[in-house]
Amino acid sequence: MSKPSPHLTVHVPLDGGRDYDILIGRGLIAGAGGRVAALKGRAAVIVSDETVAALYAAPLRESLEAAGLRSGLVTVPPGEASKSYGCFAAVCDGLLAHKVERGDLVVALGGGVVGDLAGFAAASLRRGVRFVQVPTSLLAQVDSSVGGKTGINSPLGKNLIGAFHQPRLVLADTATLDTLSEREMQAGYAEVAKYGLIGDAGFFDWCEAHWAGIFSGGPERDEAVAVCCRAKAGVVVRDEREDGERALLNLGHTFGHALERLTGYDGARLVHGEGVAIGLALAFRFSARLGLCPGQDAGRVANHLAMAGLPTTLAQVPGGCGDADALLDAMAQDKKVRDGALTFILARGIGKSFIAPGIDRAEVRAFLQDELAA
């Protein structure tokens, strides 16, 4: 394990005593026990996937137990398929078998799948127990571990069953990213770029200049995680339950979630970040088509994502993604649908995204047909 190093801290100032810190830096798992013990639980049971557990569960448990906490471990298979009713039940039963009480803590050790699943189990167990996020993927560190969205997938759509349940602490140990595959780093990077595209053109400029340092593990990595966490924390504080502004964080996700559903949540074909990358490129091209966004901005977005190794077109979905009608049907289950009408996050330029309700289905269908033909 990497030795502890100075870390960055992002505070999430939610009301009602629910505020928490996000700690970002190398080696945080080694010192996790003292920080988790400070939350005043007697036990801390880890939920992880089998791959991540083999790498990090032992040192995390050692740290927890050295701080006087009783620990345990519940594992699930790796991959998006674990965000299911069956795995949710297995995790809940596993936590109960470890005698997790309401005053204890659930520790989510893994990527976005584990964080969503363990968080939802924590929200449901004994009608709510506290939990800690220890994200080990770039995607989870910059996005899914922050903000309290937890849940599982339905055959009818992504993240349709879940709860808002804020963590009590987030420990983003950036040394864990050293063990990620190139594909996983690329997938997480889509969420990094997203924050620049939503409302921070300067950060997107910075990403264009420094993305290689994020991948290689230089100081740019910690800085990128911190910038993304600050941006998300600000949005969450202003709109915790996605009644307005927080929907902007779904830029690219209306398209991306539909693609994940149509590929059967099969990570061998398409992982979440790849779907988001295609969705980001589509959102900007659709915005340009509607006359909202300069075409050169749409081209710049696609070029940068492609340079980072990400797909940007529907033709790059392995095995295909169906026709325009299939994509529209999948989008109809998007969480932002209101009264049956599609809501998209579109853009007037880089860093100028906005919520666009009531988009005409015929316009979307024609755009998708053209994209599929291309």
Rank of each mutant, 00 (worst) to 15 (best):
L55Y: 09
Y56D: 01
A57T: 01
A57P: 01
A58F: 08
A58Y: 03
A58M: 07
P59M: 12
L60D: 02
L60F: 08
R61H: 01
R61T: 11
R61C: 11
R61Q: 15
E62H: 13
S63Y: 08
S63F: 04
E65D: 13
E65C: 10
G68H: 02
G68P: 02
G68N: 02
G68I: 03
L69M: 08
L69D: 04
L69V: 09
R70L: 10
S71V: 09
G72Y: 04
G72W: 04
L73S: 07
L73N: 09
T75A: 06
T75S: 12
V76A: 03
P77Y: 08
P77C: 10
G79M: 03
G79R: 00
G79W: 04
E80N: 07
E80W: 06
E80I: 04
A81N: 06
S84H: 04
S84V: 06
S84G: 08
Y85N: 05
Y85G: 00
G86C: 00
C87G: 04
C87Q: 15
F88W: 14
F88G: 00
A90R: 06
L95I: 10
L96F: 07
L96M: 14
L96G: 06
A97K: 14
A97H: 13
A97I: 02
H98Y: 14
K99M: 11
V100M: 07
V100L: 15
E101M: 09
R102D: 11
